[in-house]
Design a protein around this nucleic acid. Structure first.
Length: 564
DNA sequence: CTAGGGTTAG
C-alpha cells in the first residue's frame, strides 16, 4: 500500500496543502467510482496521514468492497489496519468474501465475528448467501437457528436469503415452510421460491407461484428459464424464454446452458450467434458446453475466436479449453495455452492446476505434468489425485506410489479417485500384492466403498498376473454387476494364460453385457487358436459373420504444426 | 463528531 504512487488527477479535486480531516471530505470518498480513483484518494490520504483515522480507514474498506471495485485483497489489507473494527466493517468484509467466491473463508470469518458481536440484519444475509454458495445446508440451518434466536426473522433481506438458501441446497420443502410463515411476500422472496421449484423440476409449483405473484420482473422469468434448463426441461425453458417480455444476457446464457446440458449444441450455437451482446460467461458456457458434448474441436476453435474478438478469458475459460485439449490430446495446443497463462501471470492454483496436470498427462507428457505439479505451492487434494492418476496412466507405478505415500505424510486423506489412480498404477506395473494391499487399505482403513471402477482395476491387476480364479471369485462376490471392462480383463487374462474354461465363461458374460464388443470375438478366437482348438476358432469366425460384426477400421491422428 | 453495511437470475 505504501508504494502507491500519487498521480495528479484531472478528474478529482485533490487539495494541494497538508490537510486535516475536514479537508478529506466525505463527498470526495463517496465520489470514487473506479478502483483507480479510490487508489488516488487512498494514496493522498496516506500522505496526509488521515488514513489511520478510524472513520477514514473503515470508509476505504467500504470503497474497496463496493461492487464496482470489489477488490478483496485491498479490502482485506485495509481491514487488518483497522484497530478495533466495528460490526459494520466486519459486515462489509464478509460480503466482499462472498462476492469473490470465497464463501468458505466468509463462513470462517463469520465464526470469528460472532466472538465479538451479535450478528445483525446486515450480517446474516451475507453469511446465509455464503452457505447457499457452498451448499452447506448444515451450517445454513445453524445460521437459521441464530436468526430466530436473535430475532431477525422479520427482516425481508434475511427472509429472502433463507428461502434462496434452502432452494439452492435442494431443500424445497424447507424453503416453502419459511416462505409460508412470512406475512408480506415481496418480489424477491417469490423469485427465490420460483427458483427453488424450477431447479428441482417442480414445474407446476414454480408456475403457480409465478402466476399468483402481483408483479413479475426479469428475475422471475429468468429463474424459470434457468431452473427448467438446469433440470433438463429444455423445451419448457425455451417456451418461457420465447414468451419473455424482455431479455437480458443472463436469460440468454441460461438458455444456452440448458441446450448444452441436453446435447443441443447446434441450437446453442444458433442462440450464441443470434444474441445481441455476449459476455465472458456466454463464451465460457459455449466452450464448456462443447467440451461437455465431446465437441473438442469446436471448443478449441471458439476459444481461438474468443481471443481474437471477445472479452478477456478467465479461469473458467481456461479450465474448459484445457479439458477440450485433453480430449483431443494435442500436446502442442496444450503447451500453447499453458504459455498464454504464464505470459499473462495466471497461477496454476486450484482447479486450474488440476486441469493443467490432467492436460499434460492425457497429452502424453507426464514430465510436464510433474513440473506443473511441483510448481504449485499450495497443493490441494485434487492436485495429488491428478498427478497420481497421470503417473498411473503412464505406467510409472513406483513414482505414483511414492507420491501417494508423500501425500499421506502431508496429512491429506486419499479418497476414492486417489485410490483408483494407485490401483491403475499397480495394474500397469504388474504389482499384484501391492494392488491387493491398497484395495484392502481403501476399504478397511479409509472406509471407502469401492465403486465398480475399483473392482475393475483390482480384477485387471489379478488377471494380468494370471490369478484368474481369484479374479473370477471377485466378479461373483462384488455387490454390483460386473461391467464390460471387467469381463474383457478376465477374457484377456484367460487368453494370455491359456485358461479356456474361464475364458469361455468371461466371453459368455461379456456378450450378455455388451454384445457388440469386437474385441471379445477376436480374443476368444485367439485363445482357441493358442490352445489348438481350430474347430472353435472357425466357430467364432462364423458367429462374427452371422452377427455382422466387423473389425473397426484402424485409425490414428497426427498433430499438424502451423507456422505462427 | 457522524455514517457507513444486507436479499433473488447466468
Amino acid at each position: 500500500m505504501e508504494t502507491l504512487k500519487l498521480s495528479p488527477s484531472n478528474s478529482l479535486p485533490l487539495p494541494q496543502q497538508p490537510v486535516s480531516l475536514q479537508t478529506l471530505p466525505f463527498s470526495l470518498l463517496q465520489s470514487c467510482k473506479t478502483q483507480e480513483e479510490v487508489l488516488k484518494v487512498h494514496a493522498f490520504s496516506l500522505r496526509t496521514g488521515t488514513f489511520h483515522h478510524p472513520f477514514i480507514s473503515s470508509r476505504f474498506l467500504a470503497l474497496y468492497a463496493r461492487p464496482q471495485v470489489n477488490n478483496l485483497d485491498y479490502a482485506r489489507s485495509v481491514f487488518q489496519l483497522i484497530h478495533k473494527p466495528d460490526l459494520v466493517s466486519w459486515n462489509v468484509l464478509l460480503k466482499c468474501y462472498v462476492e469473490n467466491q470465497r464463501s468458505h473463508d466468509a463462513v470462517s470469518l463469520f465464526y470469528e465475528l460472532v466472538h465479538d458481536f451479535t450478528p445483525d440484519v446486515f450480517t446474516l444475509p451475507s453469511v446465509i448467501k455464503g452457505c447457499a454458495r457452498l451448499n452447506a445446508i448444515q451450517e445454513g440451518k445453524q445460521v437459521h437457528g441464530m436468526v430466530l434466536k436473535i430475532g431477525c426473522g422479520l427482516d425481508k433481506y434475511v427472509q429472502s436469503s433463507l428461502v434462496s438458501m434452502y432452494s439452492k441446497c435442494g431443500e424445497i420443502s424447507s424453503a416453502r415452510k419459511v416462505f409460508e410463515q412470512i406475512g408480506v411476500k415481496d418480489l424477491v422472496l417469490c423469485n427465490s421460491l420460483i427458483d427453488g421449484y424450477a431447479r428441482c423440476g417442480e414445474v407446476e409449483f414454480a408456475l403457480q407461484v409465478f402466476d399468483e405473484m402481483p408483479e413479475r420482473d426479469l428475475f422471475s422469468w429468468t429463474a424459470l428459464v434457468d431452473g427448467f434448463s438446469k433440470c433438463g426441461r429444455i423445451e419448457l425453458a425455451r417456451d418461457i424464454f420465447d414468451r419473455m417480455p424482455s431479455r437480458n444476457m443472463v436469460s440468454w446464457n441460461a438458455l444456452i446452458n440448458g441446450y448444452m446440458k441436453s446435447g443441443g449444441f447446434v441450437i446453442a450455437r444458433q442462440l450464441f450467434d443470434e444474441m445481441p451482446t455476449r459476455d465472458i460467461i456466454t463464451w465460457n458456457s459455449m466452450i464448456a458446453g462443447y467440451e461437455f458434448n465431446g465437441r473438442f474441436m469446436d471448443a478449441l476453435y471458439l476459444f481461438l475466436t474468443l481471443l481474437k474478438e471477445g472479452p478477456v478469458p478467465n479461469h473458467t475459460t481456461l479450465v474448459a479449453v484445457l479439458a477440450a485439449v485433453s480430449g483431443l490430446a494435442i500436446l502442442g495446443k496444450g503447451k500453447w495455452i499453458h504459455s498464454l497463462m504464464v505470459k499473462s501471470g495466471v497461477e496454476p492454483e486450484g482447479v486450474l492446476g488440476t486441469s493443467l496436470i490432467n492436460m499434460y498427462s492425457k497429452c502424453g507428457s507426464v514430465e510436464s505434468a510433474l513440473t506443473v505439479f511441483r510448481s504449485i505451492s499450495r497443493k490441494k487434494l485434487g492436485h495429488w489425485d491428478a498427478i497420481i492418476v497421470g503417473l498411473g496412466m503412464h505406467g510409472m507405478a513406483n513414482h505414483a506410489i511414492g507420491l501417494f505415500s508423500e501425500m499421506r505424510r502431508c496429512g491429506l486423506k486419499p479418497h476414492a479417485i486417489t485410490f483408483l489412480g494407485v490401483l491403475n498404477a499397480c495394474s500397469h506395473a504388474g504389482l499384484v500384492d501391492l494392488g491387493r494391499q491398497y484395495f484392502n487399505m481403501m476399504v478397511r482403513k479409509n472406509g471407502i466403498v469401492p465403486a465398480v471402477e475399483h473392482y475393475a482395476s483390482l480384477i485387471d491387476i489379478l488377471c494380468r498376473a494370471g490369478n484368474l480364479e481369484e479374479a473370477k471369485d471377485i466378479t461373483e462376490s462384488m455387490p454390483m454387476q460386473p461391467n464390460k471392462n471387467i469381463w474383457m480383463s478376465l477374457l484377456s487374462g484367460s487368453r494370455n494364460f491359456g485358461n479356456v474354461k474361464i475364458g469361455e465363461y468371461a466371453a459368455q458374460r461379456l456378450i450378455e453385457v455388451a454384445p457388440d464388443t469386437i474385441g471379445c470375438y477376436v480374443m476368444l478366437s485367439d485363445m482357441y487358436a493358442a490352445a489348438g482348438k481350430w474347430d472353435k476358432v472357425s466357430w467364432v469366425r462364423e458367429m462374427m459373420r452371422k452377427r455382422r460384426i466387423q473389425n473397426d477400421l484402424g485409425s490414428s491422428c497426427i498433430e499438424q504444426r502451423h507456422a505462427s
